[in-house]
C-alpha cells in the first residue's frame, strides 16, 4: 500500500512528524482521566482485533487486505520500541545490585561483561569486521567476525545446550515420582510406560518376537501394543485436550476483544 519515498528530505520530515505525533498522543493519554484512557484502549483493541478476522473471512483480496502489511509493520515497530525497555530493565536491576554490592552482585557483573562484550563484538562484526586488525586473507574470517563466532558458537550455543541437556536428568527425577505406584492411575501409567519404552528398544521387540504375527496373539507383541497405545489411547486424548483448549482460546480471544477481562482494562489507577 505504501511505497518508499525517493525524496530523503521528505522522508526525514515524515519520520520526525511521526515521532512528534506519537509523543503528543502519549502525553495526551497520560494526562487524560482513567475512564477516557480505558475507553481509548478498549476501542483500539476492539477495532484492531476485529480487523484480523474480518480481513480473513471476507473472501479473496478485499478492501481490508491493503492494510495488512502496514499493520504488521506497525506491530513490529511497536515491539521494537519495547526492546529498549527490556534493556533498561536489565540495566536498572543489575546496576542496582552492583552499586549496592548485594550478595548477588557477581552475577550482575557477569551480565554487564557478557552484555557489553557481545554487543561490542556484534556491532563490529556487522559494521567494521576488520577494525584495528589486518585485512583477512583469502577464505579467512575478519578478526571481529572470528571473535563473534567464538562468542556465539563457542560460548552461547554450548551454554544453552548445557541447560537443555539438564532436561534428561529432570525427566528421570520427574518420571521417578510419576511412576510410584500408589493409585490405580499411577499403576496404569507405569504399565503403559513400560510397554512403550520397551517397544522402542531392540531388546523389547525381541522379547515378544516369538508371538505369531498372523493370529490374534499379535496384539501382545510389544511393538503392536505400543502402537495401539500411542495411536488409539494417547493421540485421541491429546486431541480431545487440544479441542477443548482451542474452543477455550476462541472464548478468551472474544473476551479480550470485547475488553471483558478485568485485568486488561488498563488505566484504572
Amino acid at each position: 500500500m505504501f511505497e518508499p519515498l525517493q525524496n530523503s528530505t521528505l522522508n526525514y520530515i515524515l519520520v520526525v512528524g511521526a515521532l512528534i505525533v506519537s509523543v503528543v498522543v502519549l502525553i495526551a493519554l497520560h494526562s487524560s482521566p482513567p475512564y477516557v484512557r480505558r475507553w481509548v484502549i478498549a476501542g483500539v483493541t476492539f477495532l484492531v482485533g476485529l480487523y484480523v478476522p474480518l480481513e480473513f473471512y471476507i473472501p479473496r483480496h478485499n478492501f481490508l487486505t491493503v492494510w495488512r502489511d502496514p499493520l504488521s509493520d506497525l506491530v513490529r515497530v511497536l515491539a521494537g520500541f519495547t526492546i529498549g525497555l527490556g534493556i533498561v530493565n536489565l540495566v536498572i536491576v543489575h546496576g542496582r545490585h552492583i552499586l549496592q554490592r548485594t550478595a548477588n552482585f557477581p552475577f550482575s557483573l557477569a551480565f554487564f561483561v557478557g552484555f557489553i562484550s557481545m554487543a561490542f563484538v556484534g556491532f563490529l562484526h556487522h559494521y567494521k569486521p576488520d577494525l584495528w586488525a589486518q585485512k583477512p586473507g583469502e577464505g579467512e574470517l575478519a578478526f571481529w567476525s572470528a571473535a563473534y563466532k567464538v562468542f556465539f558458537e563457542g560460548l552461547l550455543l554450548p551454554l544453552t545446550s548445557t541447560v537443555f541437556s539438564l532436561l534428561a536428568f529432570f525427566i528421570v527425577s520427574a518420571a521417578y515420582r510419576a511412576f510410584r505406584i500408589r493409585t490405580l492411575e499411577a499403576g496404569l501409567l507405569m504399565a503403559a510406560a513400560i510397554i512403550v519404552m520397551l517397544a522402542n528398544v531392540p531388546v523389547g521387540t525381541w522379547l515378544t518376537s516369538w508371538l505369531p504375527q498372523d493370529s490374534w496373539l499379535k496384539w501382545f507383541r510389544l511393538e503392536n501394543a505400543a502402537l495401539w497405545l500411542t495411536t488409539q489411547i494417547n493421540a485421541p486424548a491429546m486431541r480431545g485436550i487440544l479441542f477443548g483448549a482451542a474452543v477455550g482460546g476462541l472464548g478468551a480471544a472474544l473476551r479480550i476483544l470485547l475488553s471483558l477481562e478485568r485485568s486488561f482494562s488498563f488505566g484504572g489507577q
Binding site: F243, V247, G248, L250, L254, L260, S263
Partner: peptide, 29 residues
Amino acid sequence: IGEEYYAVTAYLTREPILLGSVWGQDVCR
C-alpha cells in the same frame, strides 16, 4: 489442563459475563 486454563479468570472472579463465556464454550464443545 486444556480448556480449564481459559476458565481460570471466570472461576476466580465469578463475574457473570466471564461465566457466560465459559458456559458458551462448554456448549460449543
